[in-house]
Amino acid sequence: MPTKITLIIDNPANTEDFERTYAEVKAAAKKFPKLQRLESAKVWPKEDGSAVPAYRTLDLYFDSYDDASAAVATPVAADVFGALAEAKATFTGLFADVEQA
C-alpha cells in the first residue's frame, strides 16, 4: 500500500536562517531510496495575523510501508534529520497509508 511520510515542521526562531538550511533538507530528501515523489509546502499565514500551527510540511511518498521504513534507516535519513537539527527545527513525523480517491 502506498505510504507517505509527513514532516510537520514547527515555526523556526529565524525564518531566513531556516530557509537557507531547508534547501539542504530538500536536496537530501530527494536522495531517499525508492522515493516516488516529494512535496514541500509552506503554511499560509493566518489572515488575522495570529501564529500558524506549523511553518512547513515535507511529504515523502513511497510505494509501500516497507520502502518508507527502510528509507528512514539509511544514511540519507541522517542527512535530512541532521540538517533539520542544524536549523534547530522541531518537527513531528507521521507515517500514513495513502488512500486513493
Rank of each mutant, 00 (worst) to 15 (best):
M1V: 03
M1D: 00
T6P: 02
I9M: 09
N11Y: 08
P12T: 05
N14E: 10
T15P: 09
D17C: 07
E19S: 10
R20D: 14
R20S: 13
R20H: 10
R20G: 15
T21D: 12
A23V: 11
E24L: 07
E24Q: 15
K26A: 14
K26Q: 12
A27V: 09
A27R: 13
A29F: 12
A29Q: 12
K30S: 13
K31M: 08
F32K: 08
P33N: 08
L35M: 08
Q36I: 06
R37G: 10
A41C: 12
K42A: 13
K42G: 07
K42C: 07
V43S: 12
W44I: 08
W44L: 10
D48C: 15
G49W: 10
G49R: 04
G49I: 14
S50M: 04
S50C: 03
S50P: 04
A51N: 13
A51P: 09
P53F: 09
A54Y: 13
Y55C: 00
T57I: 08
T57R: 03
L58M: 06
D59P: 01
L60N: 00
F62Q: 03
F62P: 01
D63T: 00
S64Y: 01
Y65Q: 06
Y65W: 04
D66Y: 00
D67T: 00
D67H: 01
D67L: 03
A68E: 03
A70Y: 02
T74N: 02
T74A: 02
P75T: 02
A77Y: 00
A77G: 05
A78H: 01
A78T: 01
A78R: 06
A78K: 11
D79H: 00
L84K: 05
L84T: 08
E86F: 06
K88G: 07
A89D: 01
A89L: 01
T90Y: 12
F91L: 13
F91M: 13
F91V: 07
T92W: 07
T92L: 09
F95Q: 09
A96W: 06
A96L: 10
D97G: 10
D97W: 09
V98L: 07
V98M: 10
E99F: 12
